[in-house]
Amino acid sequence: MNRFGYIRPTEVSQAVEALAADREAKIIAGGTNLVDLMKYNVERPSSIIDISKLPLDTIEETEGGGLRIGALVTNSTVAYDERVQARWPMLSSALLAGATGQLRNAATTGGNLLQRTRCYYFYDTGTPCNKREPGTGCPAIGGVNRIHAILGASDDCVATHPSDMCVAMAALEAEVLVEGPGGSRRIPMADFHRLPGDTPQHDTTLAADELIVAVELPPAGFPEHYTYLKLRDRLSYAFALVSVAVGLKMDGDTIQIARIALGGVAHKPWRVRGAEEALEGTAAAPADCAKAANLLLDGARGLKDNAFKIELARRAIVRAIGQAVAATPQSQIDKRIA
């Protein structure tokens, strides 16, 4: 690891000032991704700004019936929070599908939003990478690309966002609350992560001098009809090849509201409003589910090693809709697919 300075602010405004004063500095919270990347020399911050003493570690109910999760609340704390389990169980399930007990105990909500891709070439400083060093090229496109994107990729980058939590938050239409020098703003999850385009070095729309302070969940948590179905090469402790978060509001057999987000397939959690609309007003007949899957995967393109993910995603979407309709969410302990 390179040498670096250390700053420990005690107020949010100090953290924002420290970020604005030094664009090479990095925020550290749990450290599970940043320290790893620093050991690989992928991240080389001039200083780390340790926000662990900031008062951002609580979960509070909002006046509108939603939930405000502080940026420093750990993934475990969110996953096992009784309110989350009762009213936003899709989020709990997605969190428990990710990483390990040890990592979830250290990793934070804000850090999970900002975790970097696990593309092999991004991690390997011996190879070019447009995300790590803009303009050097993308060896993944013609290389080993089993885990890479099938949707929204560009000629410069085919990396995927690795988070499970973010997929559920996208389906739940959470908002990211940030503080910057000019004050605070809210970023809808749909706009928080971005597609790589020709600037894959930017994973998100967060400005360089902005700090995530919380994530807010809206009241609709789809506690009855939901699932988080994650398909991967190992049953535990592996990133998703394809994951599907589904939340439905049903009236009898009819779907009134549908929310679907895919993980493991793009540079951001993948949502297509038209696919959700195709399910709304239906009883999720096979043809309705197939139509939703086709709309979600419209424009999907496979590379040498990952074309299988298109059909895998199609089937996973249909299966996940079925799990949500039947109110039989995928267990994250019993890995047999319901």
Partner: peptide, 12 residues
Amino acid sequence: ERINSCLVLAVT
């Protein structure tokens, strides 16, 4: 809480 001590900077 159990954590991976290799990924934690002691100062934090």
